[in-house]
């Protein structure tokens, strides 16, 4: 069981959270000017790193805030957990 240290609610079990995927995927800044390749990158292509991974989780059975979690996807160690709105991403 992952224990996610929610900055508002404290350490909570993963079953209280909903997964939101890779946190570093950014929508094209000027969508109207983006070409097909840019959209393919944004929609489909992922780094899928074997190691440190920045990812989104929503605390749906807690504060309902979106969080940005740093986790090692091999050891499952959680190295950071911050409020998404304050992370600048």
């Amino acid at each position: 069981m992952l224990l996610i240290p929610c900055p508002h609610c404290g350490p909570r079990a993963q079953t209280e959270f909903s997964y939101g995927g890779d946190a570093n995927v950014a929508r094209p800044p000027a969508p109207e000017d983006a070409d097909g390749g840019t959209w393919v990158d944004y929609l489909y292509l992922r780094d899928n790193a074997k190691g440190g991974h920045d990812e989104l989780w929503q605390h749906i059975f807690g504060c309902r805030r979106w969080l940005r979690v740093g986790r090692d996807v091999v050891s499952h160690e959680i190295t950071s957990c911050t409020e998404l709105a304050e992370s600048g991403a």
Binding site: M1, L2, T15, Y19, V73, V74, H76
Partner: peptide, 13 residues
Amino acid sequence: DGYNSFAQRGNLP
């Protein structure tokens, strides 16, 4: 399990 993982083991839920 529903989150990225390269660990060949899963979780109890």
